[in-house]
Simulated scan of single mutants.
Amino acid sequence: MKKKWLAILLSITTVMAGLTGCGNSGQGGENAAESKASEAAASGTETGESTAAPAEGELVNVIWQWPAMGATGSGFQAVEDALNAMLEKDIGVHVTLEPALFSDLQNQSTLTITSGEQLDIILQVGTGVTPYVANGLIQPVDEYVEEYGAAIKEKCGTQLLGGYYQGKLYGIPTAYIDGESYGYMARKDILEKYNIEIDPDKLYTLDEVEKIFETVKAGEGDKFFMNIPETTSANMLHNAYCEVDTLGNTPAAGVLMLNRSFTDLTLYNLFETEEYEAYAQKMYEYAQKGYVSSDAATNTEDAN
């Protein structure tokens, strides 16, 4: 019965990348995970799950791992409450979001499952699914998407192909947008104080952003410094200074310089380009003008 509810939840979210079972065994380590996976295959159930259907009116609780950069803040609970206001009424499911550090997602999910704790949905980011599949930590979702996921197939289209591994579908890609966006976060009260209007449809250049910094710095003095969100710092160049394609998570293997041409297939060392030199010079100027905190290189405080 629980499979059905997880499948329905899958079909209305389209943001998770793996489906896991709920372990009840006290065993730990990879062998325990493999053992539980084998037992599940033999019995025709999910890893460690009970086959008993929930009582009439009883909510099915789904534990959903969620990546966090640090402290989640009060808004995190508000998101969970808003989800459950819909899910409990519509499909009888209560979702519990479990924050896990973004940099440690794989370790967190592996430890949780192998220790026997319940974990139903994980968000796999930054690593392939190979270790999850090899250790029996996730299961394919082909049959559930076929039965309940018409909306997933329509929304994802060819992007769904990215969720396959060895011929089986293990993940649902994020398909709410066909691109990435990065930028600076600004306090609304500060913008209003200096009558700064931000056009949400405009891509601002670094020179235009600097004019905003200059205005606020003049009024706020040492109380102001810019703060690039953690997910932004490595990608600011790509979106605000010049367009490149990293062909992966990092520019380590070379990049396509899309700002020069969309037909040039030459791989460039990003850090040897004139564009990167200009970007580095701009960041140096920011620091000299006091737009960057003097302890930015050593400050471990969360961006929020």
Rank of each mutant, 00 (worst) to 15 (best):
L105A: 09
L59V: 04
K223T: 06
E34S: 09
P54M: 10
V129S: 04
G162M: 04
L10A: 13
A17M: 10
N135F: 09
I8T: 07
E180M: 10
G290H: 08
K217V: 08
P229D: 03
N107L: 05
L105H: 08
A42E: 15
S11T: 07
G183A: 12
L97G: 02
T215P: 11
K193T: 15
K155Q: 06
G70R: 00
E230S: 05
L247F: 07
G149N: 06
E230Q: 07
Q77T: 12
T112A: 01
G183H: 05
A253C: 00
T263G: 13
P173E: 07
A32F: 02
C22S: 12
N249W: 04
Q106I: 02
Y241H: 15
E301L: 02
C242Y: 01
T300H: 01
T13M: 09
Y182I: 08
I63V: 13
V133T: 06
G163I: 06
W64S: 08
G70K: 01
M283L: 15
M236W: 08
L256A: 01
P140C: 11
E98G: 01
E30T: 08
P140G: 03
A17F: 07
K223L: 07
S261V: 02
L160C: 02
G136Q: 04
I212V: 14
I8E: 08
V209A: 12
G73N: 04
F271D: 07
W66Q: 03
E301P: 00
K202C: 09
L59F: 05
T231P: 05
I91T: 03
Q166N: 14
V62D: 06
K223R: 13
V244P: 00
K89S: 10
Q27N: 04
S43T: 12
M236N: 13
E192A: 13
L6V: 08
L101E: 06
T298G: 00
G73M: 09
L87Q: 02
D222Y: 01
E243C: 09
V15D: 12
M236Q: 14
L161D: 14
Y170K: 11
E180P: 00
P200M: 04
N227T: 07
D201S: 11
N259F: 14
A82I: 00
I152P: 08
Q139R: 15
T13L: 10
G219M: 11
V255H: 04
G57I: 06
E143S: 15
D199A: 08
W5K: 15
D178L: 14
T51V: 11
T174Q: 09
K211W: 06
G162R: 04
A234P: 00
G136M: 07
E210G: 01
E154N: 13
D81C: 00
I212L: 11
M185L: 11
D222E: 12
M185I: 02
Q77E: 06
T250I: 07
T273L: 10
H238L: 03
Y286S: 05
I196K: 10
D142N: 12
M69Q: 06
D264I: 05
L119S: 03
E49D: 14
I190G: 02
L237P: 01
G254F: 05
A17T: 05
H238W: 10
A296Q: 10
A296I: 14
S35A: 12
T215C: 08
A33P: 05
Y204P: 13
T250V: 02
R187W: 11
E146N: 14
G26I: 04
Q166L: 12
V145K: 06
L256E: 00
E147V: 01
S50P: 09
I91H: 02
Y194E: 03
S294F: 05
E39H: 14
